[in-house]
Design a protein around this nucleic acid. Structure first.
Lengths: 112, 112
DNA sequence: CGTGTAAGGAATTCTGACACG
DNA sequence: CGTGTAAGGAATTCTGACACG
């Protein structure tokens, strides 16, 4: 319960997919073409309305700007994707570690 | 400076106007007609793109749901507007009070 | 490999008005 | 007063393809 709260990183607004392409191009300065291409390369995963319109979150925007930066440094999309995957893995491992320590803690203190 | 930080309530994402009408109708369950009407009655103030498309924030969404609730209770838009105005006034007064106390505090402790 | 562009269609949004009440 | 609706136009978004490299 407590652990759930502590580990709950849902930044509610940050992750809600609510922005359409026009806003995203405006906020990131990227072309529609580039944004769709990064999706094709499995770097971002917008939601879709029932009619096919893409919807992005604030964290998608941040991710896009990070991608664009790397690409401009000459990094290939494939490598960026691998980096993201690794990073996500690390985050999950950290989460599990914390969960383990919390469990240990409660077993010691609560003894049940 | 310090006071500025303490008083800075910019919830960054919550107040950014980034959603178009379709998303707003979906999130609030309200009709376009009602949403535009509440704007005409000075209850909400979406931004506009250069071509006239309305853009709403998460806090606009929350406000809309509150408005809808009141309207369904039979409250008239005019009264709702007055309530909002008053509430904003109260918030500003509170802000100024805090600012005053902080200033007093720093004058006492810093003596300059 | 990453991105621009023109093409054509589908979906979205906008305004002003008529309607009911 | 608050909201629905049909009307017509303007702006947005989508996909697939050709182009360059």
């Amino acid at each position: 319960m407590k652990a759930g709260v502590l580990l709950d990183n849902t930044n509610s607004f940050r992750d809600k997919k609510v922005m359409t392409m026009g806003i995203v191009t405006e906020m990131t300065g990227l072309s529609e073409r580039r944004i769709r291409y990064y999706e094709a390369r499995k770097l971002i995963f917008p939601d879709r309305t029932s009619t096919g319109i893409r919807k992005y979150s604030f964290s998608d925007i941040e991710k896009l700007m990070e991608i664009a930066e790397k690409v401009e440094e000459g990094v290939q999309t494939d490598e960026i994707r691998r980096d993201f995957k690794k990073r996500e893995n690390d985050a999950n491992m950290k989460k599990n570690m914390i969960r383990g320590q919390l469990n240990a803690h409660f077993q010691r203190t609560n003894l049940k």
